[in-house]
Design a protein around this nucleic acid. Structure first.
Lengths: 399, 399
DNA sequence: TACCTTTTCAACGGTATGCGAATTAAATAG
DNA sequence: CTATTTAATTCGCATACCGTTGAAAAGGTA
């Protein structure tokens, strides 16, 4: 357990103030004091220190004065966008998406590489990722030295603390120390995080969970992932490793274990199609879901029934997650949502059936079809969050 | 978010020291300093304050001096047993178990009432519980005024923060404010907690998880419960409510949803027996599982196959829990363990099959057949834990 | 234009915390 | 009886928070 000394105390309050400024846009000191319950004195001291460190900026121009415009006007404070730059990336089987953001999480540049990388040797993947990061940084008009942290979000079971990838559909090998590898290549601190965790944080910072302290997110991509927000923090399992929803067991059929991934994995849904012609080509290029959507509209019965089965399986899995975590909101993201109504309807129905009566109405299902940028932005947010906490603890006293 | 002031700092370090003393028996100040990473100065100040408050005691007698017996001898410190008294209770469908413990969690008296209370009106249950608490307190040679807190552990979905019982097999009604009811009756602060959470804490304090910071416990009783220890703390879902494992869905059969409770609930396993004769009588009296054990030994095939099916279902459920929490140890408790080898073997097999390959070997299954006292002692531990944190924050500065 | 009101924010003193160095305390070795 | 060793306390310092006070900035009013 960490020992509580003045330094920790300071760090906590600093983070609290900084986070308040981040979340509530340009904000005055008085309002910070109200929100954080800290005295105006303390807020003044902390903001002075933050200003001194260049993390925040005063805003004079465009002071939208309130109606009751008496007295000394408030000085609005906001994050200094230039305080840091980070790179966030979404690494998927058939595409790489990079984003450079400033300290506020605003996108400075983005780069999408629609290339298939899964099952490539690690060296090749690392090459491609390195290249993408460098390009995207140049696109933003920066050099890598100006980037503070890189965060790579990828599917699978990731051990966040150590940066080890326990298993991922992208890598042939297991237990890859990808964080060290990329840190060495880029000569920039690089962290590795589950893509589901990344977009969970994205929704908490910018998306559909800004108002919540607790929340669950289900990502339906090639891999089925889970992100849990508990008390404004990412809940990482024991040992800090991420969850792989696809490994959940839904039942014991005649021929053994039935896992969620075998019912609702992207390749399993699409795989039942005759692997020929335009559709197979689309799958190879990672456009499988978009194409599937078209086929469903054209009433392709094989695919529709696969989508329905997948929806049922996911709905039941979500009900089980809700049974365990009782979150007020469940956000669903990922390419499988593109399957459309047949999938979503059966998901909703199965969920309604499977959720225990005592928890009926507790959780609200929200579907979200964000673009890939958003995932990458989430990875950037993970990087920023790490920055918030660590390096400025060492700044020393405010004066 | 709580504001970090010196008071909080103090509370954290105080709790840390107190917890260290609790866990590591009689312990000297130097060793506390080593374990907590606090300076000897701070430890001295805090222990002085704790001594002043009467929460701990110095131990002079029987100073087992180490071999290397040079220098001033260490003064060992330990919890003052008399610093507080609490009552813990396990409330089950067919029995009430009460325990009075001292500040260390040691049992002073216990009382078991083998009576069937489920489906009684709330008033009747409250009467019986009140009576049991009072009796047990008298047995310990105390009066209720000397008891600081009462904690009742019972099955179902409990909202710990508010003391509301959302649903329980014991109550006909839902959403019962049992904590307020009993607080008023006993005129002593009474808290309500899930029985699974209680025994989870019991194992962390006294049992098979003393060495762990993360752990999962599965309780197999009339109701199937779950307790999660995360970072030395009970993990309570959003809103602080407990989990009901029985609501987990294991599959969609031909006639709809199949929940775990329908496969592995106590009444479901035993219910398939012809409800007549000695066995039915045993069930009514809450000895069902013991009797079932005998029948299984006598190779009652109906019962054996029910036990095997239940074992499979539980094994799969545990695998899913492990997929989500990745704990180093899973402890199984509860009356259903008495079903013996057929049940346990099929559980182990199903678990081995269902646990994802990437997590194989991560979690160790441990079976525990503690007596009912232990559950009640866990409830007492919950009460003690609340005491640790709250009331002595107000003690003021140490001097 | 000069003065007053209102509000923000920085400066000062008070009290709490924890830490490091020096000091006292208690026991053994010679 | 003295020297040595280890434990625990005391003292002084740095930091953090908070409440109060007073200066600064803007608008309103005579």
């Amino acid at each position: 357990m960490k020992t509580a000394d003045p330094e920790l105390m300071r760090a906590i309050n600093r983070l609290n103030v900084l986070d308040t400024i981040r979340r509530h846009g340009p904000i005055s000191r008085v309002e910070i004091s109200e929100r954080t319950q800290l005295s105006t004195t303390t807020v003044s001291a902390i903001t002075a220190s933050l200003l001194d460190d260049g993390l925040i900026l005063p805003r004079h121009e465009g002071d939208i004065r309130n109606e009751a415009a008496r007295g000394r006007p408030r000085v609005m404070l906001e994050l200094n966008p230039d305080a840091a730059r980070v790179v966030g990336a979404k690494i998927a089987a058939n595409r790489l998406v990079f984003v450079v953001t400033d300290f506020r999480g605003d996108m400075l540049s983005k780069l999408t590489l629609p290339i298939r990388i899964d099952r490539q040797p690690i060296g090749v993947i690392a090459d491609l990722v390195e290249d993408g990061v460098r390009r995207c940084v140049v696109d933003a008009g920066l050099s890598l030295e100006e980037v503070d942290t890189v965060c790579l979000g990828l599917p699978g079971v990731i051990e966040h603390r150590t940066g080890h990838i326990r298993s991922s559909p992208i890598f042939r090998d297991t237990n890859v120390d990808f964080a060290s590898e990329m840190t060495a290549r880029l000569n920039t601190p690089t962290i590795v995080e589950s893509d589901a965790h990344a977009i969970t944080l994205a929704h908490h910072w910018f998306g559909k969970a800004r108002d919540l302290e607790d929340m669950v997110l289900i990502s339906l991509e090639q891999t089925l992932g889970l992100g849990v927000l508990h008390d404004n923090q990412l809940f990482r399992g024991a040992g800090g490793l991420s969850h792989n929803l696809g490994d959940l067991v839904l039942g014991m059929g005649a021929r053994g274990i039935v896992r969620l991934s075998s019912q609702a994995g992207e390749s399993e849904i699409l795989g039942e199609q005759p692997a020929s012609g335009r559709f197979a080509e689309a799958i190879r290029l990672g456009r499988g879901m978009a194409h599937a959507q078209a086929l469903i509209k054209a009433e392709d019965n094989t695919l529709i029934s696969a989508a329905i089965r997948a929806g049922e399986a996911v709905g039941v899995a979500i009900a089980n997650i809700v049974t365990l975590f009782a979150p007020p909101r469940v956000i669903l993201v990922g390419s499988s949502l593109a399957l459309g109504e047949p999938f979503l309807d059966s998901l909703r129905n199965a969920y309604a059936l499977a959720v225990p009566p005592s928890l009926k109405g507790v959780a609200e299902l929200v579907f979200d079809d964000s673009t890939d940028d958003f995932w990458a932005q989430g990875a950037a947010a993970v990087a920023l969050y790490e920055l918030y906490e660590s390096p400025w603890n060492t700044t020393g006293p405010a004066f």
